[in-house]
Simulated scan of single mutants.
Amino acid sequence: MNLTDRSILLTGAGGGIGRSLALQLSAFAPRLTLVGRRAEPLEEVASLVRDRGGQAHVVAADLGAPEAPARVVAAAQEHFGGIDVLVNNAGNVRAGRLAAIEESEVVAQIALNLTAPILLTRAALPALRASGDGLVVNVSSGIGLVGMPFYATYAATKAGIAHFGEALRREMYGEGVHVLTVYPGATSTPMMASSQAGPEHGFVYETPDEVAAATVAGMTDGSLSVVRGGERRRQMIDLNRNDPGALDRQLAEGKTELEQAVTGHSSL
């Protein structure tokens, strides 16, 4: 896909991977609608985008709120006259034993990680089809490929958005809309700040810029998926596919330490 001068709606744009995506996409002189919960960091990103030759429009919104996805899509269309690319990047996490997590924390993860991107995509589809070369980018997670203990709800949402994208890609095949799914590994973002998990627990970190660069490359070359996380993650994916019981036993060896490292992990 040629990203030059495209109208791109990007959620979770105020920090982390979303911020890096906005800045790297600026090289294509895009028309960016930047969406997030707080206006201040979005305005900062918008200023940087404009300095680099792009256009930017800020929409502060809680995507988990009723009617928010439709309102955000309408704002992007009204400001830039259409939507060529939708990047569903916004997300949240609450780790820990399922029995110890509040019901509201379960619902919040489902609302932002799964329900919101589905509704955003649904609302944007007419505009994406009208562009003639539309693209949906869904940011899943390596945990959407390999379910990790103490991330049960998060894993469900990230696997869900991945399969949503796969099904939609086939539904829209030949109809002018492509779907790319991105699976970041552990990334040094504000969302991960409260996690104590490191390489000894299977979490090898990349920078947001590295993930964003791989995502932009996938957008331009028509990839179906972008999988990050390095060699260790690839080994876990292969083992999970070929002998999931062996991975169960492997993860069980460090389960106590992992629980201690991630129980406080929350971006809610």
Rank of each mutant, 00 (worst) to 15 (best):
K158N: 09
V177D: 08
E78R: 13
R97F: 07
P190L: 06
R50F: 04
T115C: 10
E257M: 04
M236W: 05
E103K: 12
D62P: 00
S104P: 01
P30E: 05
D62F: 10
E210F: 05
A99F: 12
Y151A: 15
A74R: 07
S266V: 04
E103G: 12
S104K: 12
A95P: 00
V93E: 11
V216G: 02
T215V: 14
V85R: 01
P117S: 10
D62S: 14
Q196D: 07
L23H: 08
P199W: 03
A68F: 02
G254L: 11
S131I: 04
G202C: 05
H163P: 00
L180C: 05
A60Y: 09
H163L: 07
R170G: 14
V139N: 01
V72S: 02
A212D: 06
A217H: 08
V227E: 13
A159P: 01
G160Q: 09
L258Q: 02
M236N: 08
R170W: 11
L114S: 08
R19E: 15
R122H: 14
R170E: 15
G132P: 06
A261S: 06
R38G: 10
V136H: 06
D238K: 13
H265P: 00
A95F: 15
F164E: 00
A95S: 14
G96D: 15
D5C: 02
E78S: 11
S223M: 01
L25A: 02
R228G: 07
R234A: 13
T181M: 02
L135W: 01
L112F: 09
G202W: 06
H57S: 10
G36D: 03
F28T: 09
E67W: 09
Q250N: 03
V45I: 13
E171H: 09
G176M: 09
L239R: 07
S141W: 07
V35K: 03
D5Y: 02
V146A: 04
A123T: 03
I83W: 03
L268I: 09
L128T: 03
K255I: 14
E102K: 14
P190M: 04
V35C: 13
V72I: 08
L114F: 13
G144C: 08
S223A: 15
G81M: 09
S267C: 02
V139D: 00
G198Y: 02
G15Q: 13
H163D: 04
N113H: 08
M219W: 10
V45S: 04
E103D: 14
A76P: 00
N88Y: 08
Q260Y: 02
D209R: 10
G174E: 07
T187M: 06
T256P: 00
T207A: 12
F80A: 02
Y151S: 15
